[in-house]
């Protein structure tokens, strides 16, 4: 909240559309919390005019350690995120948290769980934001990735993404992270499901939380076994030999008791090691590249779809085409050809 001026200006009825992208970016880079919060809202709302802001901010991103925390409901993710925030603050690192709830009840509404505690009143080094799916799971991963970019640009040293690990959509959300920690609680049945859903593959670090409960040792043993199987499968499937193998990352298994903070320091060590591994092996550059590619494709798809709609409208709209098909004047194939022809002409001119 370093820049009150900006906040007041907005409160006085300046609309988001009118907000000058450079002014928004400047306020955000200067640490204005309301501006940051507003930009994330605009991402969620898919507001017009947020793109130039994101375009500028994306140039300021790339420094944060982005960490995904996933696992079954009740595994202790929020409690652990709480503990991680504290531990990172003790290390003088600032933390942005994105708590994502992908469940989308029919009403469209959502209860986004308890906000994690902010232990230090007025600590500007922590920013926590909750996000729901808003009935469009596909868009959630993009919104999450953009929110991460914004937190990164805002200068947070660490960005934590908390999300329920249950299926493909959650896996997509967590792809915005460089390092993914998968939480498993001592044999409860949950872990079986979780591993089935393919969450195992995305784990860079395994966390057996609730290590104070019975059965933690068994769960660790099971994970070790799975890790062994995976490693063997990985080494026999590839033709490649030694050197790539030496580089391969073996996800460590860390035991934590999130409620007391036991093991949190070990977890941070494991997360740090993974980041060092990423930096040392070019893996970070690879994931960053594929993330850029995904962003470019997503933006392209959105823009082309909009162009298509415009073209379609100019030619009378879908209803008109349907009517003509119905009347036997044309068929769907010819109709599409006629819609796309002007676009193709444009391309040929280039």
């Amino acid at each position: 909240m370093s820049d009150r001026g900006m906040a007041d200006e907005e409160a006085e009825g300046m609309t988001d559309e009118e907000a000058d992208p450079s002014a928004v970016v400047d306020a955000l880079l200067a640490g204005d919390e309301r501006t940051l919060a507003r930009v994330i809202s605009r991402i969620e709302n898919r507001a017009e005019g947020v793109r130039p802001v994101l375009a500028r901010l994306s140039r300021h991103a790339g420094e944060a350690a982005v960490i995904g925390i996933t696992g079954a409901p009740g595994a202790g993710k929020s409690t652990l995120v709480d503990g991680l925030v504290d531990a990172y603050r003790d290390r003088d690192l600032t933390v942005g948290v994105l708590a994502i709830d992908p469940s989308s009840p029919y009403s469209g509404g959502a209860v986004l769980g308890d906000r994690i505690r902010m232990h230090r009143d007025g600590d500007a080094g922590v920013f926590v934001r909750s996000m729901s799916a808003r009935g469009r799971l596909g868009g959630l991963s993009r919104a999450a990735a953009e929110a991460v970019t914004v937190l990164d640009a805002a200068g947070f040293d660490v960005v934590l993404i908390e999300t329920v690990g249950a299926g493909q959509n959650e896996v997509d959300v967590v792809r915005a992270a460089d390092t993914v920690a998968v939480l498993v609680q001592p044999e409860s049945g949950d872990d079986v499901q979780l591993l089935k859903a393919g969450v195992l593959e995305i784990a860079d670090v395994f966390v057996v939380n609730k290590a104070d409960l019975e059965g933690a040792g068994r769960t660790v043993a099971r994970l070790e076994e799975m890790r062994r199987v995976r490693k063997r499968a990985g080494s026999s499937s590839g033709i490649d030999s030694g050197d790539r193998h030496d580089d391969a990352w073996t996800p460590p298994i860390v035991e934590t008791v999130a409620t007391t903070g036991t093991g949190v320091a070990d977890l941070i060590d494991a997360l740090d090691s993974h980041r060092e591994h990423l930096l040392a092996t070019d893996d970070l550059a690879t994931t960053t590249r594929s993330r850029h590619a995904a962003t470019i494709r997503a933006l392209l798809r959105a823009d082309l779809e909009a162009l298509l709609e415009t073209t379609l409208e100019r030619q009378g709209g879908i209803d008109d085409l349907v009517r003509r098909v119905e009347a036997g004047e044309t068929d769907p194939y010819a109709a599409v050809e006629s819609v796309v022809a002007p676009i193709e002409d444009c391309l040929d001119d280039r």
Binding site: P105, S107, G109, L112, G113, D114, S130, S132
Partner: peptide
Amino acid sequence: RDAGFEVVYSG
């Protein structure tokens, strides 16, 4: 929530 609002609970 049932009214379609997004709700964050403070704890």
